[in-house]
């Protein structure tokens, strides 16, 4: 039964990775931007929620309601003010800009909140769990995270495939120049895509922060999970990212069942194996 438990926990953990990775996948899929500040943005969201909860006294869950929309607006502004300018200069420029953003965010957080570890207090939710059998119990928080991830990914997919705005995002992603010929303002369209990516990374950052502690420097080590989920699943494909997250989560929990010391290593090895033997990922996309 321990193995079944490991599988269930792996899938639930994978939901968190998928939620975290979908913003990275979206920015790459739509604009070919590799966002090196992705992990730090998740941490920034956590600190923002922490500050909101501390100052106003509301629960961290309610802080989410504030932080996610704020991040969407922030995403739009970051695109229009920063990424847009670097896009024209080629992929290396955007890589450097997001790397710079990562350093700036880390140091701002260090300056404002010190290097102490924090947690987001969600009261009893953090330990509450549902006992399914004697050996398997799942935490409500993990289930909530998984459902959120599934909801966000399905929502994003529906947004891209069914809505007018989603269609123009796909059109602009496919051929920005031809898209302007049908009246699309690519700067605005990309801004919207960045806003969505930022909103999802904020959500993921908060879910991370509710289950484990965070500090200003933890962003880059979180970023690697998002990269692994995206690459395992297939670049630029949201369904792929979902599958990639779950496969990564499974690899970690199953390896932990063998020896807890193997947890992270197993994920990294799986990632390397995918890169070596199936570099297009498990569910590659034609494009977003």
């Amino acid at each position: 039964m321990d193995w079944v438990n490991a599988l269930v926990q792996g899938i639930l953990l994978g939901g968190l990775y998928a939620l975290f990775a979908c913003g990275l996948s979206l920015l790459f899929g739509v604009m070919r931007i590799v966002n090196l500040a992705h992990g730090d943005l998740a941490v920034l969201a956590a600190f923002l929620a922490y500050a909101t909860a501390t100052v106003t006294g509301v629960s961290a869950l309610w802080a989410t309601v504030v932080v996610v929309p704020v991040f969407a607006v922030l995403g739009y502004l970051v695109h229009r003010g920063l990424l847009e300018r670097s896009l024209a200069a080629g992929p290396l420029a955007t890589l450097l800009v997001t790397f710079g953003l990562s350093i700036v965010v880390q140091n701002l957080l260090l300056e404002s909140f010190s290097a102490d570890s924090r947690t987001l207090d969600v009261g009893s939710l953090v330990s509450a769990s549902l006992r399914i059998t004697d050996d398997i119990s799942v935490s409500y928080l993990a289930v909530l995270t998984f459902l959120l991830a599934a909801g966000v990914l399905v929502g994003l997919q529906l947004f891209l495939s069914r809505t007018q705005l989603g269609r123009i995002v796909r059109a602009t992603s496919d051929d920005p120049e031809a898209a302007t010929l049908v009246g699309a303002d690519s700067r605005h369209v990309y801004g919207i895509a960045t806003a969505l990516a930022f909103a999802t990374v904020a959500l993921a950052g908060l879910m991370f922060a509710m289950r484990s502690s965070f500090d200003p420097n933890i962003g880059p080590s979180r970023l690697i999970f998002a990269f692994e989920a995206v690459v395992i699943g297939g670049l630029g494909s949201l369904w792929g990212t979902f599958v990639g997250g779950i496969v990564l989560g499974l690899a970690q929990t199953v390896a932990a069942q063998i020896d807890p010391a193997l947890t992270l290593l197993a994920g990294h090895l799986l990632f390397l194996a995918v890169l070596a033997f199936r570099p297009q990922g498990l569910l590659p996309a034609r494009s977003m």
């Binding site: 007018q164 269609r167 123009i168 796909r170 059109a171 051929d175 898209a179 049908v182 034609r286």
Partner: peptide, 16 residues
């Protein structure tokens, strides 16, 4: 726009 349907190609033009 290769990955969109023919209808969607024209639809984005009509919309935007």
């Amino acid at each position: 726009f290769e990955d969109m349907t023919v209808f969607e190609n024209v639809l984005v033009a009509a919309r935007y």
